[in-house]
Amino acid sequence: MLFLQYLTAGIVTGCFLILATIGFSLTRQVEGFLNIAHAELLGIGAFTTWWLNASQGWHILIAGPAAVIFTALVGLVIARTIYDPIRRRGPAVLLITSTGVAFVIGGVIDAMVGTGIRTLDIGLATTYKPFGIRVTDYQIIVVALAAAVSVSLALFLNRTRIGLAIRARAVNPELAASRGIDVRTTSRVTWLLSSGLAGVAGVMLAVIATLTTDLPFHQILQILAVAILAGLGSLYTVIASGLIIGIAMDVSVYWIPAGYRPLVAFSIVIIVLLFRSEGLAGTKAA
């Protein structure tokens, strides 16, 4: 029974990780680099929600979407002003630059919010007990949101013109450009989308976690774990590896101390990389 309880917690963690990693993976595929600052975008989403909700008295259903939009815009501005001018220097320089961006955002959040635990002005979680397993309504929301986001992103990328253009650019940028795909628009839409997704994950973080300013930075480790495990693949491998890592981390608590959760996540990653250096997706990096 306790095992099933951990399994449930793992599924919720996995769904949160899916939300947090999808945007990161999208940037990786379309823009071609690992954006370490993605986790700090989660922080922007979380603390904007907190500020609007707890200090300004907005309802969470208004504060949440507002924070998502704000995060998406911040992400776009950062991309246009900082990443675009150095794009031709290659992924390594972009990766290191994004570490600098993470420092700046983290510092700004720290200076504005300060230390201590922040809580939203929302009701306490209601607990349900189907089949004797404890589930809170917020946990259900995380799972539902992860499912809704995954499905709508899949529909967007497969069914709309702009979505198909984004995928074309991810596969072969030169060919896409020469076939008349508007590189600028697709890049901007991608940034808005991936940062907005970080915002959604940030709002969820504010709802389910004890919110401190160093929390966003710690998310990057798990995001990286999921992203490496997924490799350069499709949306679906991100979903699979998010669930694998989430469940593995929480179920491991059944046998070993909870402090080892990150160790479990990265051990899986290292083992997978030993056998498949390209991750679960199986496509080689270009």
């Binding site: 900082i82 001018p85 150095i86 220097r89 320089v93 290191i96 630059t97 570490t99 600098g100 961006v101 993470a102 420092f103 700046v104 955002i105 983290g106 510092g107 700004v108 720290d110 200076a111 300060g114 230390t115």
Partner: peptide
């Protein structure tokens, strides 16, 4: 304490900006 804390954050911000500027 608060001003020391802000200074620590400013240190982070400044290091980050330096990083971005030097790479650029």
């Amino acid at each position: 304490v608060r001003s020391a804390q802000i200074a620590a954050s400013v240190e982070h911000i400044f290091t980050g900006l330096l990083f971005i500027a030097v790479l650029r």
